[in-house]
Simulated scan of single mutants.
Amino acid sequence: MYDVYIGSFLSAMSTGLGAVPILFLQKTIKHRGRDLLLAFSAGIMMAASMRGLIPEALANGNIMKMCIGLILGVLILTILEKNIPHIELEHTKEGIQFDEKALLIISAITLHNLPEGLSVGVSYASEKQDLGHLIALAIGLQNAPEGLLVALFLINQNISRIKAFFIATLTGAIEIVTSLIGFYLTTFVESLVSYGLAFAAGAMLFIIYKELIPESHGDGHELTSTYSFIFGILFMIVLTELF
């Protein structure tokens, strides 16, 4: 049980760890570097979904439960995407105050982090002992560049480096809450494990294709981003095979 507390905390706080460099960077990173980070993160999440969450959802249930859970994950993220006010990391919006900007940015990142935290918690509730560690590692690796990008975006909105660092760190904290919700819900209602794993996979796949891949292709770096995406997949596969 303590594993889920440690795993969810470390994966969530990786967002803040990724934001640490902005305290020392003199200049923001270029679009190419940003796109490479986004694509690499998408590759990590893809490998975690396809090699971890979906196979385990099938092992804990059947093809019908997996399909239902995955589609529900996509539908819920679609509803949240359409109803939670937010702006994407690459966009600026004129004529709004600091508080509104921060709220819109935090809303966007929170939307991304909800299924990520859930996937960690549900994974620790599955019968496969190492799945929780695998998904926590994958989410942590994805959160680090996300934290850096969030902090850089905030700095570009004339927010101080210290404030940007703390806001970026706090955006990851929601993952601890959703992770524990996912863990306890599926622990007490064992039949939900398969649905929960597939739900998390569907939500993550939605984010990969709807958000991360388009954002990484928005500045004319499609080819290098594609390679970065593939290397992200390979990186995660190698880690799972080695450890």
Rank of each mutant, 00 (worst) to 15 (best):
S11C: 09
S11M: 08
A12V: 07
A12I: 02
T15N: 03
L17Q: 00
G18N: 01
A19Y: 09
V20I: 09
V20K: 03
P21D: 09
L23V: 02
F24K: 03
F24W: 06
L25E: 06
L25V: 09
Q26R: 10
K27H: 02
K27L: 01
K27T: 08
T28G: 03
I29L: 04
I29C: 06
I29R: 02
K30N: 07
K30F: 13
K30I: 08
H31M: 03
H31T: 12
R32P: 00
R34V: 00
D35W: 01
L36E: 00
A39E: 00
F40A: 13
S41I: 14
S41F: 05
A42G: 06
G43M: 09
M45P: 08
A48I: 03
S49G: 04
S49V: 05
G52N: 09
L53T: 04
P55A: 07
E56A: 15
L58W: 07
A59S: 13
K65N: 12
K65F: 07
C67L: 11
G69V: 02
G69T: 00
L70G: 01
L72T: 09
L75S: 03
L77H: 05
K82R: 14
K82V: 08
P85K: 01
P85V: 12
H86T: 13
I87E: 03
I87W: 08
L89P: 13
L89M: 10
E90M: 15
H91G: 09
I96P: 12
Q97P: 12
D99G: 12
A102N: 07
A102M: 13
A102E: 00
A102G: 12
L103D: 04
L104Y: 02
H112F: 07
H112N: 14
L114N: 08
L114Q: 06
L118T: 10
L118R: 14
L118D: 12
L118A: 13
S119W: 15
S119F: 09
S119H: 15
G121I: 12
A125S: 03
S126I: 15
E127R: 02
K128V: 15
Q129E: 05
D130G: 06
L131A: 11
G132M: 15
G132K: 02
H133I: 15
L137H: 10
I139L: 05
G140S: 11
G140T: 04
